[in-house]
């Protein structure tokens, strides 16, 4: 059992937890993830570790409400517990002194990139970031990025903050203004990663992408997290989660991540139908 030390809402449907997980906190390195289970009937859910404090034995997780499992998770309060937390899983980010690094992130993927940005800055890189979100209210962690980066530029889909448009618009404009990048790291919704990978390829900037396929065990046992990179199949849990963005078959990942969409929608409706205590909150969220 892993006690929730704190829980706060960063933006609509985006929650931050600090969880007691001393063994994970001691070993964690940027780029790694954990698998959590919140209750006996729950799924095993992979989540990137955003930060770890070995002294207090706590890890920081940022979760977006997406399906039944994450909605239930986000109802847990400080003092309550996660049933299982296992990790740190996956290979840590291979950080070099690249020179100028640009972090390209969107949505809750922003949280996954924060530890990599910090580690890259600590390794002597000049780190720049482009953060995208649908709207100003949904932008997360901007201050923490600004603290670690030389410069941060933002975009929103609706133009309520920064440039109206996508992260790729910002990146292209930045480069057209004469900015040079030796390396890019991309994390976010798969469609965003696909477009950003294509742009960095066009601009001949080497790029890594941290992938988020469906997983069960997270230790290489199930192979559900198969991804294709440069025509070869890899297991994201033990071979990744980061791969050469220019070789990733993002279209395949988009389709694979939708494998259970119908079943998930049914689960969500089941949650609503059962009239459990969540119903009111869920309805509220839907009509908000």
């Amino acid at each position: 059992m892993h006690r929730i030390h704190s829980h706060r809402v960063l933006a609509e449907k985006i929650h931050e937890f600090w969880i007691e997980a001393p063994l994970v906190a001691r070993k964690y390195r940027a780029g790694q993830f954990v698998i959590v289970r919140t209750h006996e009937f729950g799924e095993r859910i992979p989540l990137t570790v955003v930060e770890a404090d070995a002294n207090s034995g706590r890890i920081r997780l940022i979760v977006q409400e997406a399906g039944k499992s994450t909605i239930l998770m986000c109802r847990l309060q400080a003092g309550e517990h996660f049933l299982d937390v296992v990790g740190p899983l996956g290979r840590a980010t291979h950080i070099e002194n690249w020179g100028n690094l640009v972090a390209v992130c969107g949505g809750v993927g922003t949280a996954s990139l924060l530890p990599i940005v910090r580690a890259a800055a600590a390794a002597g890189n000049s780190v720049y970031a482009v953060i995208g979100s649908r709207s100003k209210d949904l932008m997360i962690l901007e201050d923490e990025f600004r603290a670690a980066c030389k410069e941060v530029r933002v975009s929103t889909d609706d133009g309520t903050y920064g440039i109206k448009g996508f992260v790729t618009d910002v990146l292209r404009q930045w480069i057209e203004q004469g900015q040079k990048f030796q390396q890019a790291i991309i994390v976010g919704p798969v469609i965003m990663m696909k477009v950003a990978a294509a742009l960095t390829k066009e601009l001949a900037i080497p790029a890594l992408a941290s992938l988020n396929p469906i997983m069960v065990d997270g230790t290489g046992m199930c192979g559900g997290c198969r991804v294709t990179v440069h025509g070869k199949t890899y297991f994201a849990c033990v071979d990744g989660p980061e791969f050469d963005a220019h070789g990733v078959d993002f279209q395949e990942l988009i389709l694979r991540n939708q494998a259970y969409r119908n079943l998930e929608e049914r689960a969500l409706h089941g949650l609503l139908d059962k009239g459990c205590q969540l119903t009111a909150q869920l309805e509220g969220a839907k009509h908000a």
């Binding site: 069960v216 290489g220 199930c222 294709t228 395949e252 389709l255 494998a259």
Partner: peptide, 26 residues
Amino acid sequence: AGLPRMMNVPGENLVGVYSANEFLTR
């Protein structure tokens, strides 16, 4: 021996292709 071998044929990563490990684990 918990790392499933796949067939190495085209289409192996389509939605609906499971390793036996994944299907049975679920």
